[in-house]
Write a protein that binds this DNA or RNA. Structure first.
Lengths: 114, 114
DNA sequence: GGAACATACCTTGTACCTCTAGGTATAATA
DNA sequence: TATTATACCTAGAGGTACAAGGTATGTTCC
């Protein structure tokens, strides 16, 4: 529940897989992604918008997501992002790397160490 | 077994907790830490020495580890690193952050998503 | 009508970090 | 003697987050 501070390095490492993962669940837009991160983490993670938008732009530039401006029923203009085939492949790679590191870290955190 | 490519962002995020974790198991030195990472990861992770040494210097500068030059029985001079009290506290924080992010990521990777 | 808040997007500048590609030196092995 | 393994270090290029700022509109309440 309480907020967990995340170093900028961990932020940098997790932002791409996090966004790609959320978009793997269906299209979304910046503001909603921010809320999703907060929700999925149980309030532990709270991203700033100033950090997210450059990430989305980079993902778009790299072709991992496609973007489309649309006006919602609420009347607001939103930029909807959708995962591309390339983005799906990148997500799979990111997951593999993440687990390789996670498994190694948790091994040192296991019963034999600490 | 096969080598897993790790992005520089993930490298940056995991290097400090990885080194601190290894040192939590007892003092060590650069070259041995490199081998430990390879061993613990089952050959999946292979750090370069040019990447590790700046990390160790930063940890020392920040007071998370203490360093001591000694000559081993082999006759070689080695710089031995040891976890400080401050380093232990940092490791605990890094673990908390890591798990907050990991749990959130794996939630999006769970049965409901993808 | 007006104030306040939530929604929704964006950019600039500083500071920091990795990685590549080099370098030095010694002990052990072939 | 040559090669490999051990053991450490640094400079420069390129890339990233974060704070702090900005714009604009829909909703709610008085």
């Amino acid at each position: 529940m309480s907020q967990i501070p995340v170093s900028k390095e961990l932020m940098a490492a997790s932002s791409r897989p996090m966004v790609l993962s959320i978009l793997a669940g269906g299209e979304s837009y910046g503001y909603e992604i921010l809320q999703q991160v907060s929700l999925l983490s149980g309030g532990q993670l709270n991203w700033s918008d100033g950090m997210l938008y450059p990430v989305l732009h980079r993902l778009e530039k790299d072709g991992l997501v496609t973007a489309q401006w649309r006006t919602a029923e609420s009347g607001r203009r939103r930029k909807y992002y959708r995962l591309s085939a390339k983005g799906k492949r990148q997500l799979a790679k990111d997951r593999t790397s993440w687990f390789a590191v996670h498994d190694t870290l948790t091994q040192t955190w296991g019963p034999n160490h600490v």
